[in-house]
Nucleic acid binder design. Structure first.
Length: 212
DNA sequence: AATACCGCTCCAGAACTCGC
DNA sequence: GCGAGTTCTGGAGCGGTATT
């Protein structure tokens, strides 16, 4: 006989199930270790802040050592903090610090994605960043403002509002701002442009009736 | 309802770094 | 130098969401 658990095995908090979804979620998202580590792992992932040299195992180690408690703590880490940990050499420590430094150059849209707001993935983050231009503007947006953005429905809008309604999340954003992370979009929108084709010649072969 | 797109997770192989 | 542990990378598949 299958019996569903009612409390989180890690922190003992009550579990909830959102309507229409199969999974149960721990309500203690601010202090449940696996949730915090998961958020940090998502934050550093290649598609988010892309911090080289860091992975799930290392994040876990940092957390165990009390070096980090949320994503903003990453920006207070120093080489000397890391180098004494198990399986950490000078080279690895330097790579991690370098990766964290480089992540400060990551565009606003990816910072938004990295925050891990429910339903806000890479593409949605791009659309939102394009419409609101800055974290402050987004934080002050109403449900109506959000729903008017392309591809954003009520579900996603609610999720964004919920994120900014949490003082803890606002605190993390404030600390990221102090650390130097980009919380505003570029003046000139270059998010959809790349320099992949720079310096290359493009040859189109075949016959087109319109151009022949 | 159908369609297209997106988010998320998993997997396997390659590459890298560390401790011994 | 070697073995072990970890990260990086690309791809595939599933389920959910927005749009029409």
């Amino acid at each position: 006989k299958v019996k569903f658990i009612t409390h989180c095995p890690e922190c003992g908090s009550k579990l909830v199930r959102y309507e229409g979804e199969a999974a149960y979620y721990c309500t203690n998202d601010a202090a449940c270790p696996p949730q915090i580590k998961g958020k940090i792992e998502h934050f550093i992932s290649r598609r988010a802040m892309n911090i080289d040299g860091l992975g799930p195992e290392t994040v876990d180690q940092f957390y165990q050592e009390g070096l980090i408690r949320d994503v903003a703590d990453l920006y207070t880490l120093k080489t000397s903090d890391i180098i004494n940990l198990e399986r950490m050499g000078e080279k690895s420590a330097e790579n991690i610090i370098k990766g964290i430094e480089q992540s400060k150059e990551v565009p606003f849209e990816r910072v938004l994605f990295a925050l891990g707001i429910r339903f806000v993935g890479e593409t949605v983050a791009k659309k939102v960043a394009k419409s609101f231009k800055s974290m402050d503007a987004l934080a002050d947006a109403s449900l109506d403002n959000l729903i008017h953005v392309d591809e954003i429905g009520e579900k996603i809008a609610q999720s964004i509002l919920l994120y900014f309604a949490n003082p803890k999340n606002r605190d993390i954003i404030e600390r990221l701002r102090v650390a130097g992370v980009r919380l505003e979009a570029d003046e000139e929108d270059t998010s959809e442009h790349t320099d992949k084709l720079a310096g290359k010649s493009i040859v189109i072969s075949g016959v087109s009736p319109s151009f022949a």
